[in-house]
Amino acid sequence: MTVTSTPRAAPTSGAEPNGSRRRRPRLSKRSVPYLLLAPALFFELLVHIVPMLGGLWMSFLRLNQFFLREWMSAPFTGLANYRFALDFDGAAGVELLQSFGVTAAFSVITVGVSWVLGLAAALFLQRSFPGRTLLRGLFLVPYALPIYTSVMIWKFMLDRSDGMVNATLSDLGLGGERFWLLGNNAFLSLTITAVWRLWPFAFLALMAGLQSIPTDIYDAAAVDGAGLWQQIRTITVPMLSPVSQVLILVLFLWTFNDFNVPYLLFDQAVPSSANLISIHIYQNSFLTWNFGLGSAMSTLLLLFLLVITAGYLMLTSRRSRNA
């Protein structure tokens, strides 16, 4: 997220083109910015930082039903929970690994498809034509619906016996006796549901990006004889890359941490093909009451996301500097 604004954030204000014009001394009273930040800092500490540290602490404890009530005095077990979660010879380690793989696939596919659909729709709706505003509004509706609503609609449609999907498939003579919420098809169902409610966000962001590309660049390219496809490839997509970089990162974090969609789609019976990591952790803490292990798994997830995000930011910022 920080990518695009990093140059501005650089404290070496002299490097900024307008840095010298910004005369700070007037506001130099040291406490002012801290006062302004105080409320945000307070709530972030209360809801995010301190509980996160609490979770980190819990991951070193043997925190099960025997110690829940007296959680302050739960025995310290060092890295035992981590060792257990990462023991890939045991059933639990294998499951974690599998759940991780499912999540990675889900995340990559959902983000990829959402980006492609969003870009396509943004390009299609770039030029004005009758009904454009209507379509634009329509495409955004799934994003505006509460998660619960969108997931329940899909759950209803994907029901094996009475669902719309199977009814349509059998009308078309394509079978229609399929399970969509069980077995391996569950992955597909999960992905489609997630894409349905996320791609409008990609559309919105990319549409915003398209609007800021000056039209004269295209005109110049057209004069040079570049076809439309070439223009899209050589102008549109590269010019959109700042938006895309942020968008992809945000979507990735949303999908990788997604809990609501699988939880609502499959109730408590999440099939292993759709067992996203958040669900897996939930089952390993709230269903089995082993909060130490659950916290260790969440911490591993957080570490992974931190590494990925940091890597992604370094990669993209280097590339944009080179460009």
Binding site: M1, T2, A9, P11, S13, R24, L27, R30, V32, P33, Y34, L36, L37, A40, L41, E44, V47, H48, I49, V50, P51, M52, G54, G55, M58, V250, L253, N257, F259, I277, S278, I281, Y282, S285, F291, G294, S295, S298, T299, L301, L302, L305, L306, T309
Partner: peptide
Amino acid sequence: YRFRGRDVFRFTVLSTQMFPGILFLLPL
């Protein structure tokens, strides 16, 4: 404003977007 801790604050706040809800639900 340019002030000490500005970048730390920005990065920390943004990184909370990464926190899996399941990690801090019980502590919260």
